[in-house]
Amino acid sequence: MISARAASAVLAAWYWLVVAFLFAPLVVVVLFSLNDAEVSILPIRALSGRWYAMLMKDQTVLHALGNSLIVAVAAVVVSVLLGAPLAIGAHRHGGKVGRALVGFALAPMMIPALILGVSLLTLLNALNAQLSLVSVTLGHTLICLPYVVLVLDARLAGYDPRLDEAALDLGAGPLMLLWTITLPLLAPAITAAALLAFTLSFDDVVVAFFLTGRENTLPMTIWAMLRYGITPELNALAALTILVSALTALLAEMTLRNARSISAHPNLKETSS
């Protein structure tokens, strides 16, 4: 029989192997973005920030970045405004119909982005609609919505209905209940869902390409710049994108953890046990 120590050593090694597999490419990108040389090979010649400086002056990239931010923020707002009421409503009054609704809202998650993009384009064409950043936002809302619903639904599963009963009992109307009890309790989950939705929209290239009119988003621009290879400028852009995505994801995770520790608060526990 293997000793517990040996087993844990093997597990630790396995863990670090997986971590390396996941993060080594990111590290390499960041490293090359700081390399002075134009060709991305080791060894690093000299450290330099010149690719970042070049990036900051690149109008094409900056404009595309602006577009991506506009779309991401709009998609987040719309998908949260649609997803939160859906999740709350389905949880509270839904029963079987509610579960079905949630399942329905999750469906776009299982559709490949390519299919989603093409079918939305077909629909918009049939309606004779102009393509623009608005249509991209529409597509991204569809991508984000399932994740918003998923995160909120998971959070609502641990939501104590007696809190609602107590509030109603103490004379709160439905709106006051929503505003003073439900939403504050859900706030961390909503924040996390919004951050997750933001990264999803910020990363998408396929749906954006099909649904955009005259504007480029950042991933579209990066994808198009790849025609003649990966330049250090692209590495710098990738490094910055990784940074933003990582910070957003970290923030989302921390918000959720914080929420879990609040709901594990002894006082609350007492009321719900």
Binding site: V118, L121, F209, G213, R214, N216, T221, A224, R227
Partner: peptide, 20 residues
């Protein structure tokens, strides 16, 4: 507005791009 391959270009033009 950027595309990154000729096939993409044709696909987007065919899918309503001619109006844009």
């Amino acid at each position: 507005t950027f595309f990154s391959s000729s096939d993409e270009m044709i696909a987007k033009l065919k899918g309503g791009g001619t109006r844009i």
